[in-house]
């Protein structure tokens, strides 16, 4: 009995120590995430004045009503499609690479993983400008395709350029969780599958894929969410010719000066993402 009490006490004090250690990051989250989020929420119920300022009075739901209009719906649909395309391409490209990577000797494996991370050493904006040069008319890629007889390729300022830019930007976020999952996969299970006369594709579908599903899900979310709100890449590589969520929200703040609408859209977007992510994890990733 007394042993149990002592243990419970120790557990409690450990928990308290854990709490204290977590306090800085907790405070950080409250200060730089929760508080701004509440401000965004408050602004979403405010009113745009005729000079474009935000009157923190006359609280109303106009900004949310606006989200039901066709213009916002179309923007959302376009952004979802773009994010889906990006996610699927990332998945298809990243899976074999992560597989290959996980089956190398440790030295090579580490080198490959470092190669995946290297782009992060350069600023995102700078990398987008670099793509702009690569894809431009008469740029390196165009010159190359011309040299090998495929003719000029004018990719810059097209949807293709946007997808290329997004896949490039978010591919590491797909590779890393996939690699972690595949690395943990017990190879003997694959052998067992083959022993039981499972074909390659059957083994993949019924053993490998379900076991690496946590990586697939985590990677997909990490790619899908930022692609949904992408702003820099569509503007720089797509020439801003399509209105997507990111640019629409920026427009509300910096051009229309309609903060309530910008705030409501940001908030709804965040809430939808958060809820669907939780649901996704709960349903698909029990063993995460």
């Amino acid at each position: 009995m007394s042993v149990g009490i002592a243990e419970a006490k120790r557990e409690r004090s450990e928990r308290r120590r854990g709490f204290l250690l977590a306090l800085p990051s907790f405070a950080y989250m409250v200060l730089f995430f929760a508080v701004p989020l509440i401000i965004v929420l408050v602004y979403s119920f405010a009113t745009r004045t005729s000079t474009g300022s935000t009157a923190l009075s006359d609280w109303n739901l106009d900004a949310y009503r606006k989200l039901g209009e066709p213009i916002v719906r179309n923007v959302v649909v376009r952004s979802v499609i773009l994010a889906l395309v990006t996610t699927v391409i990332c998945l298809v490209v990243a899976y074999p690479f992560a597989w290959f990577c996980a089956h190398q000797r440790p030295t090579i494996r580490n080198l490959l993983l470092i190669a995946v991370m290297i782009p992060f050493w350069t600023n995102f904006l700078v990398r987008n400008y670099a793509w702009r040069i690569l894809l431009s008319n008469g740029g390196p890629i165009s010159s190359f395709t011309e040299a090998i007889g495929l003719g000029e390729t004018n990719i810059l300022f097209t949807k293709t350029a946007v997808v290329i830019g997004l896949v490039y930007a978010y591919l590491p976020f797909m590779i890393l969780p996939l690699y972690a999952s595949i690395d943990r996969l017990d190879r003997r299970l694959i052998e067992a599958g083959r022993d039981l006369y499972g074909s390659g594709s059957q083994t993949f579908r019924r053993i490998v894929l379900p076991l690496t599903m946590p990586g697939v899900i985590a990677g997909s979310i990490l790619v899908f969410v930022p692609s949904m709100g992408a702003y820099v890449t569509p503007e720089l590589l797509g020439g801003g010719k399509e209105t997507l969520l990111g640019s629409y929200i920026v427009t509300q703040f910096l051009t229309a000066r309609n903060w309530p609408v910008g705030a409501s859209l940001s908030f709804v977007l965040m809430a939808v993402m958060l809820v669907s992510t939780i649901v996704y994890f709960r349903s698909g990733g029990k063993n995460l």
């Binding site: 474009g52 179309n74 209105t243 427009t251 229309a256 000066r257 309609n258 609408v261």
Partner: peptide
Amino acid sequence: TNTGDFETNFSDAFSEAKG
């Protein structure tokens, strides 16, 4: 010049024109 409440019509028209 500032067109007051009409500003949002300008920005929405521009967003819609882009498609």
